[in-house]
Design a binder for these strands. Structure first.
Lengths: 102, 102
DNA sequence: TCCATGTGCAACTGTTCAGTTGCACATGAA
DNA sequence: TTCATGTGCAACTGAACAGTTGCACATGGA
């Protein structure tokens, strides 16, 4: 599993930025207005999200728009689902074993 | 969304511990044998997982078994799915808008 | 050309955290 | 009781990281 994805998700500010980006692409400067952060702080967070492949940059004239990429989220979800399913399956086997007892 | 869950998931060692715990409950000492870590380091990681509600402790005689709890994983998955879905939905609306153009 | 706006890069600070070491306490078996 | 095993707690170290500040560069409009 790609570690960078979970590292990027670990910060609440980055998750909020992601939620905002899910609404549509924006610039770092635009985000820094709606968040209690410096533009530089936003850029750093977006860089971390980009390292995880969750965000992509697009130049438009003199501004840079950040666009969300949902594929890594899908991978993270898949990993979580697999681990949880393994545990649930074990519980089910345990349950049926107990019910088989006389 | 509960921040502690994503914080706990951000460390690769903790995710490996989770994968191991999905197989069945174990003690910190038992885990420290199979991982290149001190028992104390394992205990700390399990503590972080416990703070997130992903792990529960059970005393059995003089040993403490750690058991996985899958509910928080379900919540994390739900959050991820929601954010990704919002973005995908936006892409769909954009696509249909473009196709409507003459 | 001039200027406002948007971006990029580097250095600095404070904090958090992973991992270790050392020691004390508890428990089960002989 | 004695001893081996398992656990709990505290202090220490080094590294990673969030956030800031300061300054330089680029771009579009007047």
């Amino acid at each position: 599993m790609n570690n960078a994805v979970f590292v990027a998700l670990a910060d609440p500010t980055r998750r909020q930025l992601l939620e905002r980006l899910a609404m549509g692409p924006t610039t770092a400067t635009g985000l820094s207005v709606r968040f209690p952060l410096t533009r530089q702080a936003v850029v750093k967070h977006l860089g971390t999200l980009a390292d995880a492949g969750m965000v992509a940059k697009e130049r438009h004239g003199r501004e840079v728009r950040y666009r969300m990429e949902s594929a890594p989220i899908g991978e993270a979800t898949a990993w979580l689902t697999t681990v949880a399913a393994r545990w649930e399956q074990r519980l089910l086997r345990l349950k049926s074993y107990v019910e088989e007892q006389p």
